[in-house]
């Protein structure tokens, strides 16, 4: 149950990272065709990093859970 809350938090963080990448263009404080403003650069780096790290964590979590499931299945087959 507690781990499920953590996984839900990771999903929300991934979505927040995507929002941060899109925010400068969605909110409109980054003009089209102009050089990136400081706020835009900050949002892109933080949002991109947050989304990437959250995604990696979700993948690691799923992979480890699958590995554990496979191990259990092997034990059942052996028995």
């Amino acid at each position: 149950m507690k781990a499920k809350v953590g996984v839900s938090a990771l999903i929300l963080l991934f979505l927040a990272g995507l929002w941060l990448v899109a925010a400068p263009f969605a909110v409109g404080y980054q003009p089209r065709g102009a050089a990136y403003a400081d706020a835009t650069v900050n949002d892109l780096w933080i949002g991109g990093g947050l989304a990437a790290v959250s995604f990696v964590a979700l993948v690691v979590y799923a992979a480890d859970a699958l590995r554990e499931l496979a191990g259990r299945g092997k034990h059942v087959a052996d028995g």
Binding site: V7, L10, L13, G49, L50, V53, A57, Y61
Partner: peptide, 16 residues
């Protein structure tokens, strides 16, 4: 290990 990775990433997100 997956829970540990999740805790580290969540802590990094807190700082971000």
């Amino acid at each position: 290990i997956r829970k540990f990775v999740g805790a580290v990433v969540a802590a990094l997100a807190l700082m971000a």
